[in-house]
């Protein structure tokens, strides 16, 4: 997928654990893991809003775009 979720980097910067983040934004550990491992197909604006609120950042800090090379 061309969209990359840089949640790991932001979490490390803010020194917040997965457990704590999942609890604060109200999603399960499993869903947070899907988000972190780039397996998710879509992200709700409400989840993104909570992520930005908790991590005190902008959507651009969490999401990145990288052009996919054609096989």
């Amino acid at each position: 997928m061309a969209i990359i979720v840089n949640l790991d980097v932001m979490m490390a910067k803010k020194k917040i654990s997965s457990n704590e983040l999942a609890e604060k934004i109200g999603i399960t550990q499993a869903n947070l893991s899907i988000l972190k491992t780039n397996k998710c197909k879509a992200i709700r604006f409400s989840t993104l809003e909570k992520l930005c609120e908790v991590l005190d950042c902008k959507p651009g800090d969490i999401l990145d775009y990288e052009k996919e090379s054609k096989k």
Binding site: L32, K39, A42, R44
Partner: peptide, 8 residues
Amino acid sequence: KEENDLTI
């Protein structure tokens, strides 16, 4: 279903 399951 997959899309719905993988929407966080």
